[in-house]
Structure formats: C-alpha cells, structure tokens
Nucleic acid binder design. Sequence first.
DNA 1: ATCGCCCTGTGGTCTATACAACATGTCAAG
DNA 2: CTTGACATGTTGTATAGACCACAGGGCGAT
Lengths: 250, 250
Amino acid sequence: MVLDIIHRNSPIPIYHQLKEILLKKIRTGEWQPGALIPSERELCETFGISRMTARQAITDLVNEGVCYREQGRGTFVSPRKIQQQLQHLSGFTEDIRARGQSPSTKVLVAAMRPANETTADRLRVAIGTPVFCLERLRLADDQPLAVERTHILFKGCELLADEDLEHNSLYRTLESRFGVLLVEADQELEAGLASAEDAQLLQIAVGSAVLYTRRTSYTERNQPIEYARSVYCGNKYVFYTHLKREQLFS
Amino acid sequence: MVLDIIHRNSPIPIYHQLKEILLKKIRTGEWQPGALIPSERELCETFGISRMTARQAITDLVNEGVCYREQGRGTFVSPRKIQQQLQHLSGFTEDIRARGQSPSTKVLVAAMRPANETTADRLRVAIGTPVFCLERLRLADDQPLAVERTHILFKGCELLADEDLEHNSLYRTLESRFGVLLVEADQELEAGLASAEDAQLLQIAVGSAVLYTRRTSYTERNQPIEYARSVYCGNKYVFYTHLKREQLFS
DNA sequence: ATCGCCCTGTGGTCTATACAACATGTCAAG
DNA sequence: CTTGACATGTTGTATAGACCACAGGGCGAT
C-alpha cells in the first residue's frame, strides 16, 4: 500500500486514482474474492484524502460489481463474475478457448445466396437480396459441438468468400478486415430434438436433445448485419447469462 | 412539482424519496425522453435539501440508465431502451402476461428443507442449512409449461409458507412482504430430454425436448437469496436475451 | 459580419463534519 | 452459563461550502 500514492496536482481526479489503485490490488490477486478491503476511514488516513472522496471511488467499484458493501462490517471483493457478458458476443472461438478447449471449424458453405423471408426480415431488406451465407460445423477438441448457419449483409460482404473462416474468428475478421463491429444482439434460445441432417453433422442420434439459437446482431448504428441460426449439442453446451434488473417501469 | 414533498422524518432516505419523485415524472411522461430535468441547484432550492443529496438521487438514476448528464448543459432523460433486461428477472408471471397469455400456478411443495450440496454452494451456506423449498407447476392458458424448483434463504424465509404463491408472483411477494429485492442473477441454460417425472407433470411424452435452467439470484448487496432449477417445455417456450458488448477491462 | 472575451449557469470534484444504523466483541449482572 | 448493556468500528445518510471545467449567450472590438 505504501508505494501507491495519490498525485494531487494530476488532472486525473483523486477518486479515480484511488479506484485504479484498488482495482490493481484486486486484479493482481493481492486481494482475493471475498477479502475485506480497507475501511473508508482507513483509506482516508492512508492517502490523506476526505472520506467522501474515498467513498466515491468505492461506490464506483460497487456499481461496477467489483466490490460489495455490508453495513456495519465493511467492503469486500466480489466473487469472480463480470466478463460473462462479453463472452456472448465474442463468438464460438473465444467461447471455447475461454473454457480451456481447442476450437476448430469446418466450413460447409460460404457463398452469396438470395435471402429467404426470415433472413430478409431480420436484416431489414427485400426478399431475394443476395447475402453472404456461411455454414460451419464447430468443434471443440475435435468433437462436433454445433452447426452454425449465418447470413451476413453489408457493403462488400461478398469478399468474405476470400477469407479463411476455418482458422479465423468471424467476428474478428469482420472487425479487423472489414471494419464492421458488432456490439449488440438479440438472441432467442429454444430446446428441440436433433433432425436427421443435424444429427449426422453432429454425430449424435436423431432425436437427441439440442439447443436452437437464433441471433440478430447489430452495429453501433443499430443496423442489423448478421442473422445466425445455430444448433448446439444439448449435452455438451451450456449457455450462461447474467441478468440485471433495471428499476425503470417497475 | 409543488405537490411532491420530502418527508424529513421518514425512515426512507431523502435521496431515495427524491429519486422516486423524479422517476414518477419520467414514468408518467411528464418529462419525455431527451427532456432537461431541473438542475441540481434548482432541486436543492425546491426541496430544501443539500446539493450532495440531490446529486446522489440523480447519480442513482444515471447509473440505472434513466438519465444522462452533460457537463455544462444539464441532466437529461434517457431515450427508451432498457425494458428487455427486466423481463428476465420479472419471473414467470410477468413473462407470460407480457406475451398476452394467462398465467396460473400449482404449488407442489412449499416447506423448509435442508440444503443439498449444490444448493448450499449456490447460496453460500453450510450443507444441511434449512432453506425454503418451493416447487411449482407453471401454466399458461391452463397448459403446463414449466416446473420450477426454487430454494430460498434469508432471515424469516420460513414465513413464505404462509404466503399465497399460487396467485401471487414470488418476486413481488419477496419485495412487498419481506423487503427482499432481487436485482441480479446468473443463469445457465441447457437443452435436455424430459424425465419420467417431468414428463408426467408437463403432460408431454418422455424424451420430449425440454430446456433446463439453473439460476442464482442476488440482492443489491450481492447476497445470493435464491437458487432455482426449472424445466421448460421445449416446444412452448422461447428464451429471449439481449446481448451487449461491454468495455470492461479493455 | 466575425472574432474573442466575459458572465452566468451547469455538472465535476473535494473537503470537513455530524449523526444514524448495523455488526461484533467485551464484560458485568443475573 | 446466559443475558443484556456497552464500546468500538463499520457503512449509510445528510449538510454547507469551495473551487474547477465546460457550454452558451451577450457584447464589444475589429
């Protein structure tokens, strides 16, 4: 604690400096999840700042879910958490890596095709508009895990056919090679039974449990770029979500 | 504005009272999205409170996404959005109503029981700790749709046995009768096949597609209160989520 | 007409202080 | 041994005041 000091003439607000100091202790593991962090008054004393200022730093961390307070006891480091949200939009590649497995991909289809009714509706264009269709078998440790059928539409999307989408993440390719950044998505999940075609691809029995997902992804400008339908092996894939209640319209 | 007054001897904090007053103006549409709300100093003057107190109320609203600030200009009402997130934590009753169907419930079990290993782990207590177990069959338009098995633990949870949980929402009961507000949850979703027991309850064939969910719900203080396992009919229920990419730790 | 300064009002940061509410341990009275 | 009062330390709420940074309008100099 001694080496971390507050710079009073810095343009960076004191509460923000303190926040960074505390965050560092937590991220480096010096303060483990569940650990009691110094009390507000202790922080005032240590850094020579007002309690309200120390409190503001901690309040920020609490709002971000990094810490939680217990009146009369103190402030503690939150257990793990966070990170979850991001993974959902990071795609299959990152998802699998995050769980310590080795992802691989087999491209089944990668070509321009006219949009059917559902796809056209999701991407807000006319039926028959040519869109880039990508069908991929996704594997983890060489075990088939999902079939992903995605439809992409933006200016120049036909150039996706030249990309190596077996070894590169689709989302990273969109971002780095085409400057297309997907930041939001609506997703539906539904349980079902494996069809003959899906069963064969996934090497499971017809009628096995599978999870269907349908996802529409949007750019910052709220423009739909991707519509993806996927089929996941029921016994090999679990979806995680973190839900948060908003007070509005209670 | 004249009729809304702050009660100084109320046990409810002033900043919270102010927050409610502001929220009401927004919800009733008196202040439309994009509208400029009174300045912090103006609110101090109007309600006879300190600026820091007024500021705390507004800060809460900003953190909840209801308002946004612009330095040098003022504080404004946020454009819509939100709403989606809420539905996930609003529970079955609100979910079904939202889709225009009539929800009903049959309570199968409602009693205190010792926690098993999984439940104890999720609720962060010792194995065998008595928790309130609630098992309910959920129906929409009198059609069985899901079986919900939830375990709840907080001081006084045994009094839940006296509540009418067939006609009242569990979450609303927790909130209004016990002052327990669940604001966050971690949820897992997985596809599976109906077991004999679940199939009978849901009146479907054994081996039908079902969706399993496991959810741990937390209070504002990040304390786990509820651990729920549910089974949903695969062909009658679709989960919606809205995903958003977060910058955290970028 | 345009540029630039100043004034005013806004949110942003910070201090110093006070008391309330709650958790926990200590210790004396029963 | 148990109970209750008390002390201490924690976060929660609230006040009054100060100065900074920014936005925007007014107004004079050019």
